[in-house]
Design a protein around this nucleic acid. Structure first.
Lengths: 356, 356
DNA sequence: TCGGCATGATAAACCGGTTCATCAAAGTCG
DNA sequence: CGACTTTGATGAACCGGTTTATCATGCCGA
């Protein structure tokens, strides 16, 4: 049923070798094809609708032109968090542009079933030329597997210590920006809702906040809330139970989602944002514009980070070696309404704006 | 470097055929292996860490255990709309459970570059056993390609007329539910913001609304706004310019995103939802719980639809044939605050309603 | 006229699995 | 005991490409 290279060869009165060389451009090694034959082959291929068999080609060449995407498969990330979506978007842009394809792998959190999970990791197999690892759980295990079978990989959002090429954002600096911003608005009792303990971003985000607070002469105040919004909500509810004098006047959440949870708790108590409590998030995913009020948040260039990781992997596969092992992309602060720095449209105070 | 089946055979003092039969369970046809040999082979394989070469296996068997996912690659869908994310989530759940893998394809809206797009479609190739088409643009073209090369496929959210197996939700019925609900709340001037003209869901959603309104003796009122939130916002702004007596008292948007846009416009004018204008959306993606107030919307079981589509494809690949060509899943109305039917509780509880 | 060389082309050996056809040995039955 | 079946095992031919090694030819200069 399928039309093979030998069919084309027969029709064009040529050899399979000549067909292969012709259809793959002239980058073939030892095979020379004359112009006349070349033309006959092209015509024949077009005539019978020849399409190369990608699997056979892959077996013969040892390259598949496919890169694997390893994503976490938990509600908090894959399902509900726009982060993965945006990262994937950036990755795919590069992958498609480089004429590669993407194969999806999902890493499960816990290997309760000792059969399933190792087998899924084992599937880091001959079908892909390399891997982009988007902060999968059990990252070390996966990396070790890649290393033992010689699979090239680039990690997105993972600690350098695990080895390999990594792309990260400057979490520490981002936290400094957020804390400095809130301090500059006059806040003193600023609480930081920190993220999942096992995430690589949690420690530097915590540290940046703590260092900034301490340097300014104020007490750091950290409560773990996780990356999910329910965590932010639960923690915020407890904080609102405190007597007013001990209550925070500002919240710096580890995450946009967590910030949203906190905002819900605040609004549910009839408090207003940013007047009663100011909020700053982290990530600047697309839905940070959708909260009420719109969320002031630290901007990570997520799609760009994904694109860069993919680009690095593809370069690596093409034999390039002259790039840094660890890339840290800069972050910035996107100021919207939730922090109170921007006057709300209903009550503008245009004369108070100060540049500094 | 790589360890092959022949290495295992040599070490175990057996033939490649025996190794293949042993490691693939006993579902092999003509090859019989004794218990002793079987054990030797298992030991040998474990000892030298044999991992089957998926590409070679694929070439030999003609099956790759990979299914292709064709997704639209436009901002409105892939980037900003949780729909694709949720559908993908459902699809992946089934794919992984069936020990398949997923390969990602992106369909671009317009083939401005005549080179890129056909080649991407041509990549519906030997690497996948079947395709799940998630409402890709230029659907007909892709389907035709699948049909000519005999690639099995299942479509998600596409017209029956294009042929093949399809999974849809009952858009028409959903619109009826929404319109009936608003009518029952006493609304008469209900405007429907309709979706992208080229989307398959647009017509039935429009129709359900119109039929319900007409049947109740009221004038249908449809304005095209598209699926993006900016469209909803722009249209709503124009509507708010109308004199109060002509202004709609309720909006039924084709989409949660579109509904959010409309809500923004309303809130920006200082109007309140649902007291001044009631809102109902469509889809019930996760962020419908995040709007302020929480959005009343028609629930499509998106992950379930994705899972079903994947399940159908896998069944098809396994040779089953006894299922309907066209599946239409039921929809329901999720009543939250934006329609005014629920007295707005001060404390929203939307976090727990993930299961239904 | 002959060696050297560039050109055009091909047969055959891979890549790493699966599976068909064949065969030896052992067990079963009349 | 001979015929027949079952069990255990294997060599070799696939799958559809790529690539190496080899060869035939024509052209050049000496």
């Amino acid at each position: 049923m399928a039309v093979t290279i030998r069919d084309v060869a027969r029709l064009a009165n040529a050899s399979p070798a000549a067909v292969s060389a012709t259809l793959n451009g002239s980058r073939t090694k030892g095979i020379r094809v004359g112009d006349a034959t070349r033309q006959r082959i092209r015509d024949a291929a077009a005539q019978i609708g020849y399409v190369p068999h990608a699997v056979a080609k892959s077996l013969a060449t040892g390259r598949s032109q496919v890169i694997g995407l390893m994503l976490p498969y938990t509600d908090a990330f894959f399902d509900k968090n726009p982060f993965c979506q945006e990262a994937m978007n950036g990755i795919l842009r590069e992958v498609v542009a480089a004429h590669y394809n993407a194969m999806l792998y999902t890493a499960v959190e816990e290997s309760g079933d000792p059969h399933t999970s190792p087998s899924r990791i084992a599937e880091v197999d001959s079908r892909v030329d390399g891997m982009v690892l988007v902060m999968p759980p059990r990252h070390g295990e996966i990396i070790r597997r890649c290393q033992t079978i010689g699979m090239p990989f680039v990690s997105l959002l993972r600690p350098f210590e695990d080895g390999g090429l990594t792309v990260n954002a400057d979490d520490y600096r981002g936290s400094c920006l957020a804390a400095e911003h809130l301090l500059s608005l006059g806040h003193r009792r600023i609480v930081h809702l920190s993220g999942n303990e096992d995430a690589v971003t949690t420690a530097p985000r915590k540290q940046g906040y703590c260092d900034t607070m301490t340097a300014a002469g104020y007490e750091p105040w950290v409560i773990n809330a996780g990356f999910d919004w329910s965590g932010g909500q639960a923690v915020m509810e407890r904080l609102l139970d405190l007597p007013p004098a001990q209550r925070p006047t500002a919240v710096f959440a580890a995450n946009d989602l967590c910030a949203e949870g906190a905002m819900r708790a605040i609004k549910a108590r009839g408090r207003t944002i940013p007047d009663d409590i100011a909020i700053v998030g982290f990530d600047d995913t697309w839905f940070a514009t959708m909260t009420q009020p719109a969320l002031t948040t630290v901007r990570m260039p997520i799609p760009e980070m994904g694109a860069l990781a993919a680009r690095m992997l593809i370069d690596l596969l093409d034999g390039k070696t002259d790039f840094p092992e660890q890339v840290v992309l800069p972050v910035s602060l996107t100021v919207r309404q939730s922090c109170g720095a921007n006057a709300a449209p209903a009550a503008p105070l245009p004369f108070n704006e100060e540049k500094s």
